[in-house]
Design a protein around this nucleic acid. Sequence first.
DNA 1: CCTACCGATCGGTAGG
DNA 2: CCTACCGATCGGTAGG
Lengths: 212, 212
Amino acid sequence: MPDDMHQLILDAATRRFARSGVASASLSKIAADVGIQKPSLLYHFRSKAELHEAVIASLVERWRERLPSLLLAATDGESRFEAVVWEVVHFFAEDPDRARILLREMLDRPEWFRGLLVDQLSTWMDVVVAALRRGMTEGTIRDDLEPATAVMLATQLLLSGVATYDVLSAFEPADAPSTLETAASADGVPDGFERYLSQLVRFAHAGLFRDA
Amino acid sequence: MPDDMHQLILDAATRRFARSGVASASLSKIAADVGIQKPSLLYHFRSKAELHEAVIASLVERWRERLPSLLLAATDGESRFEAVVWEVVHFFAEDPDRARILLREMLDRPEWFRGLLVDQLSTWMDVVVAALRRGMTEGTIRDDLEPATAVMLATQLLLSGVATYDVLSAFEPADAPSTLETAASADGVPDGFERYLSQLVRFAHAGLFRDA
DNA sequence: CCTACCGATCGGTAGG
DNA sequence: CCTACCGATCGGTAGG
């Protein structure tokens, strides 16, 4: 883990791509982050385009690892959609750079991203839409929204809400009961961020569900 | 209007900045868009940084022009928040590049953007939050969300929903009743986009309001 | 994994 | 508004 140069480069590139964008992130700086020279980086990844693809592929792969639990959460009994929403928000919140990279790709290559969605998300979308339609006939889901559109909007809210937390928290009440501004809860997520996430989920929830 | 080179450059830069990001948009290409050479552009704007600032300032100025009607919509009687939401969504929808530029700034310079929000939006936020609190006591507004957070989330949903429409519409039903895929309604907004916008507004609405 | 180097492109300046 | 040019940095290659 600590000495797999391939993985170290991938992680550094992910960070740089997320914060500066792919075009503005230079191979020299990514190499410097892991303590090597640029030509050495280009031995592991033959071009910047290949490194870019690898970063995206790694992100997509981690999403696919999570899909089974997402589908389970979507199809089981009780509070199924709430479970899905929490799965999605945790996927982004455990590394906000994921959300930032995806948001940048949406802006940089919209048609490409659209194709990625159709390839990677169609199955998941079918399952979720079917469950939403059941919820509509049961009266738990709002029936004034196109199901697929509602899913996309809810996901976009979670994704962009996590990606831009640093900005959106500008007007958060500062009456945090924590003793340090860097106070973190058990799982390493800062207190303020966690409170924000629960509001994010509640907002997305309201977009899909009828009031209890 | 058509021969004001200063404005032509601003418009071209806005477009390039929105689609490629500031760092990746080159002054040469912006100059070429308006039919001049790069040194000629640098006569109108002394540096790329100055051009960047001018694009942002123009966007902020257009937002400030819209503020009065926003505050009116927020404080008048009946369906006040719905009017505000429509004002905001129209501000972005009439030129989605506005939303794209703002979203990129949030990713590129989060602390700077946070400061901009505090400077430019505090007054507006105070008015809207006060109105939201009244709505909570009246029972029309959901009371399980921090008002300022709810406003930020709703705005972020509208902004990022418009900015990434090309992506998020991937699963939109294609059963449009229009005769052409480029069919546009009276005000020049394509049919599919307009239907999407109304879903966007409905979703944001649900995040703020209780069910009727 | 390195040093040394390539052509292309960047933002910006000189000078007219 | 232009041509001509600057140093810096980019992605990538040669060669070891």
